[in-house]
Design a protein around this nucleic acid. Structure first.
Lengths: 163, 163
DNA sequence: CCAGAATAGTTGTAGCGTCAACTATTGGCG
DNA sequence: CGCCAATAGTTGACGCTACAACTATTCTGG
């Protein structure tokens, strides 16, 4: 990390981004773990299902929406299924595919966990920013995701095209 | 994740930040793993040592600079020591403390890994941003880190005070 | 000056993610 | 048709991180 290769502003931005990616997961996980017994990724999976029609999604689509590989999702969904929060069944239209559906129990867990989670996100991320900075973060996020996920394989569903 | 609790811009910013924290580690890790046999966190540890006087730091200080807990760092340094990249020795001034020092081998590894890593950071993070956005990211980062690491326990060393 | 609290660090364990290997189905095209 | 590539998903092993428990020093107030 030779400082001469990045100018002062670039280095400052980079150090902050690294720190955020190290610290944010812990902040999210510990609140959700304590209040709902879920990791942030597990919560996010349940939340994506809760917003889908029939509260059901194919594994591949769910993996995209949660920025994860299929292998990771498969392990997570197996554990969620063992806890009765989700159920899997073969997709009727395509025998290769698997559908994951939120159970009633899973739905009520997300519902009960959401308020405290949203409050936590507000407290640690949204509140400290001005509304102008929130908007800047959207633009910066789009620019970065275009490179971090070039084909839009994981983020195409909500990403705005670059101007 | 009830959308009604966050407005459109807030939700957009939040989804992008989540996606970045999921995707960035993989982008950094895979390049460094392939080119230097190091995880990004391991590289960062070596890089922080390479910039310190005597290429030596106390474990606690090194943990702060790398946004990590002492437990995590201890495991990582043990593995780096086994590979001959770092050496540990009891701190003379305080018998509780341990110093970690970069070996010659560790130094040459960081030196050889740095160019490709910096290029990767440029390609995926800095280049897609305007210089104005880089500056905005610094401000946004400071605002978030003030909440993510309230006491400045991990980030005080480089964080700018809020205006 | 010494008892208890705080600091510094290590270690074992359990849980999660990555990677590679694998099965099963579908789609394309010759 | 029939074969081969692509798609969809699962699984097992391995490595890394968080958490809790532990040792060992140093600091501090009575």
């Amino acid at each position: 990390m030779d400082a001469s290769w990045l100018d002062a502003d670039e280095m400052a931005a980079w150090l902050r981004l690294v720190a955020i990616t190290e610290l944010l997961p812990g902040v999210l996980d510990s609140q959700l773990r304590r209040d709902a017994g879920l990791s942030h990724y597990e919560y996010f999976v349940l939340a994506m299902l809760s917003e889908a029609p029939e509260r059901t999604l194919r594994m591949t689509s769910l993996a995209q929406r949660t920025n994860a590989t299929l292998a990771r999702l498969s392990h997570v969904v197996r554990r969620l299924e063992e806890r009765g929060l989700v159920e899997r069944y073969p997709c009727p239209e395509d025998a290769r595919a698997t559908n994951a559906r939120l159970t009633a129990e899973g739905w009520s867990l997300v519902e009960s966990a959401a308020p405290a989670h949203v409050a936590n996100v507000r407290e640690h991320v949204l509140d400290p920013l001005t509304s102008q900075q929130v908007h800047q973060l959207v633009e910066i996020g789009d620019a970065l995701l275009e490179r971090l996920d070039p084909g839009g394989r994981m983020t195409a569903l909500y990403r705005r095209e670059a101007r």
